[in-house]
């Protein structure tokens, strides 16, 4: 059997292909990338929560109920849309996040959502998370202020779960 390419040429081509493959292998996991500087950690502030309805439910009058088809005669007329949530996060008394979060969805009936990542130096920090999800104009309905110790490279997640009493660390 004769080879279509001579042995020295085969060796040369093999060397070229190996060099290209080695190049690919080298840059397939190097050089390393540092997402956060050494000596820092991350606090993630994220929740998905529905505020109160846009307006209060209203009791339908008997006349209104009579006009509705029998299967739709619910005594309460409740709007689909939800209020916006106002949320605030302060790290060491510095407000790093303060925003009104609109409800999601075309009908504005989905939960308000947030996902933010904050880099902090390792060490002790006072974290204050506040949230307003009712019609009140000022102040907050939920608040958690706590001193946390962040280790280098640590990722702390601050979530909001009303069923667990409000803001929780995860």
């Amino acid at each position: 059997m004769s080879l279509p390419v001579s042995i020295p040429r085969l060796i040369g081509l093999f060397a070229v292909l190996t060099a290209v493959t080695a190049f690919a292998a080298t840059f397939s996991n190097a050089p390393a990338y540092r997402q956060i500087p050494a000596g820092t950690g991350v606090i993630k502030f994220s929740f998905s929560h529905s505020a109160d309805r846009g307006r209060e439910c209203r009791r339908r009058t008997p006349e209104e109920l009579a006009k509705l088809p029998p299967n739709m005669r619910r005594p309460l007329d409740c709007p689909r849309s939800r209020r916006a949530i106002f949320a605030e996060l302060a790290i060491d008394d510095v407000v790093v996040f303060s925003k009104e979060l609109p409800p999601s969805g075309f009908a504005k009936d989905g939960p308000s959502q947030v996902y933010r990542r904050f880099m902090v130096a390792a060490g002790s920090h006072t974290i204050a998370a506040r949230l307003r999800d009712t019609p009140r104009a000022s102040g907050f309905d939920h608040e958690r202020i706590e001193a946390v110790s962040v280790r280098p490279g640590q990722s702390l997640a601050l979530d909001f779960r009303p069923e667990h009493g409000g803001f929780i660390w995860r």
Binding site: N29, Y33, S155
Partner: peptide
């Protein structure tokens, strides 16, 4: 140069530094 993993994921930590596949 076998392809190897870079330590198990841990969502309580930030993976940094991490060897990226630059391709």
């Amino acid at each position: 140069k076998p392809a190897l993993s870079q330590g198990a994921a841990d969502l309580a930590k930030v993976p940094s530094p991490v060897g990226l596949d630059w391709f």
